[in-house]
Design a protein around this nucleic acid. Structure first.
Lengths: 185, 185
DNA sequence: GGGTGCATGTAATGGGTTACATGATTCT
DNA sequence: AGAATCATGTAACCCATTACATGCACCC
């Protein structure tokens, strides 16, 4: 069974549905948009754009600027838009996300207690930080993009991040307490 | 920068720390142990075991059985045990887990409202089911493995699954309500 | 002079799933 | 008769990150 053209090209079509942009722009935009549940590298983006152009899903225009490299700005074609809609309708494939942290916890009996506590404490700190970022981003979006029809959907994914980080913080806190109890501290 | 020998071999070392077993056994055991945060296929396991044998981390014994294929049973060497401990001490690398569902939600404005609701409803059902499995597994483990010193650590990873699924259910429920509100239903 | 940002792209390398190949036994 | 289970392994393929290659402008 072939999974013709993975989700990378779909993510790029989606970004182009916001507004036309270059491969470089996409890479820059990702951390501020879909960054907490998706990632793409230049090594994926540029070949994908090439292939999508050949397939007629996007068109490319070259912009020239003095003293700076040319920009290749892509925009969706009618076919590209159709492809995006078709993909949106298909049921998403859910894969088990791998977590090295949990793998280490699972085998944690084979190392010192302090080691496990440190790993989990770092995880806790990361998610506490992430929570702050989600809340700040939400506030900013609601102000700056108030009239964008896509805003509600963006907020839904942000809300997911918030729920996930909250749960992570709760688990880490409880688990740290349990580790201390095991230590007899 | 080389990431010498990924985490696959470490996961296998960990499984062998429970008791000696074959590659086939590992594949069978994974869904019942680390399955909710890790996965391995035969195509990874067999080559890894070969390479680990060559590296002296494990040793292999062949068991013969009438009318059935030979079993290659692996066990940890002193070096294998040391390698596992070293890896456990190192800080886990945390990668952003990709979620096709969230990607579709993010671009959800480009399709019909019903489509998004269906995706999220399926996600909700999946996590409600998962919650039941976690609770049942926890009960079973506490009975059947009561005296195993690794039990507390196994329960910690199960607890993570519970927290994650609870948060997912909560998010999905809230988001479904929000989608209905947007629809003006 | 050296790092950073802009901007594109390719090549090398690694990680991972699926399909293929084999073959006996047992269940339906 | 046909499918599933036991059991091992390889090969083909896909997906993804990182490193490399280029080159100008700007700032410290």
């Amino acid at each position: 069974m072939k999974r013709s053209g993975g989700a990378t090209s779909k993510a790029l079509l989606g970004l182009l549905s916001i507004h036309p942009m270059s491969g470089y722009d996409m890479r820059q935009l990702i951390p501020w948009s879909i960054g907490h549940f998706w990632s793409e590298s230049y090594g994926q983006i540029y070949p994908a754009l090439k292939q999508m152009t050949a397939a007629g899903l996007v068109v490319r225009k070259t912009e020239q600027h003095e003293g700076r490299p040319d920009r290749h700005v892509y925009s969706l074609t009618k076919q590209g838009r159709a492809e995006l809609r078709t993909w949106l309708k298909a049921a998403p494939v859910d894969e088990v996300p791998r977590s090295e942290l949990l793998l280490k916890v699972f085998f944690g009996a084979h190392t010192e207690k302090g080691v496990n506590r440190e790993h989990i404490a770092a995880f806790l700190a990361m998610h506490e930080q992430a929570l702050k970022v989600y809340v700040a981003t939400e506030k900013r979006l609601k102000k700056e993009e108030a009239q964008d029809p896509q805003l509600p959907y963006w907020l839904m994914t942000l809300s997911f991040g918030r729920h996930r980080s909250k749960a992570s913080v709760k688990w880490a806190t409880e688990t740290l307490a349990e580790l201390e109890r095991l230590d007899g501290i």
